[in-house]
């Protein structure tokens, strides 16, 4: 049984490394990543689950880190934008001009990266459903859709259904 009754040291698995952090039970994962670990790629914005700027991967699934407690991440693999290096989706965002101010970009990239891994054969409907989790105030979303589609087009396909 994991109990955290007051501020204490906990060990998180972040981007393939074990990291010790001092966390309050009520600290969100977003707060701990940014303020304790200096991983400021995950962005705070609405802090209400609406915008997706804070999206990270938990065991490969996109999760909004503003609505997850750090202590809930114990025993799970956390991936932040700092953990992605030269991934196809990062390159595609540059090639397709899929950002302007860039504030939403890390959240979009984490979500798109997960989509390309989990559903390499995703069709338009799945892409649309997943992309609705993130908001961008600068682009018209077209470039972001093009970026994810260009990555999916490169994936080896087992099932084109």
């Amino acid at each position: 049984m994991v109990n955290l009754v007051k501020m204490d040291l906990i060990e998180l698995a972040v981007n393939g490394e074990k990291r010790l952090v001092m966390a309050r039970p009520a600290d969100t994962l977003l707060h701990v990543l940014r303020e304790q670990l200096g991983l400021t790629g995950s962005k705070p914005s609405c802090k209400n689950g609406d915008c997706g700027a804070c999206t990270v991967l938990i065991d490969g699934q996109p999760i909004k880190s503003c609505l997850m407690l750090a202590v809930e991440a114990l025993g799970h693999e956390i991936t932040t934008i700092e953990g992605l290096k030269d991934s196809p989706i990062q390159r595609a965002f540059i090639d397709k001009f899929a950002f302007q101010c860039g504030y939403c970009t890390s959240g979009f990239i984490m979500n798109c990266h997960a989509l390309s891994v989990i559903h390499p054969d995703a069709g338009d409907e799945t892409i649309r459903e997943w992309l609705q989790s993130n908001l961008c105030r600068c682009t018209g979303y077209e470039e972001i859709t093009e970026a994810i589609k260009s990555v999916l087009a490169q994936e080896p396909k087992e099932n084109n259904g």
């Binding site: 049984m1 994991v2 109990n3 955290l4 009754v5 007051k6 501020m7 309050r24 039970p25 009520a26 600290d27 969100t28 707060h31 407690l69 202590v71």
Partner: peptide, 17 residues
């Protein structure tokens, strides 16, 4: 940020919870 503290428990059975 949650502006107050709470304790977190993660029981593994209904009776414990």
């Amino acid at each position: 940020m949650i502006p107050f503290d709470f304790a977190y428990y993660q029981p593994s059975s209904l009776a414990e919870a």
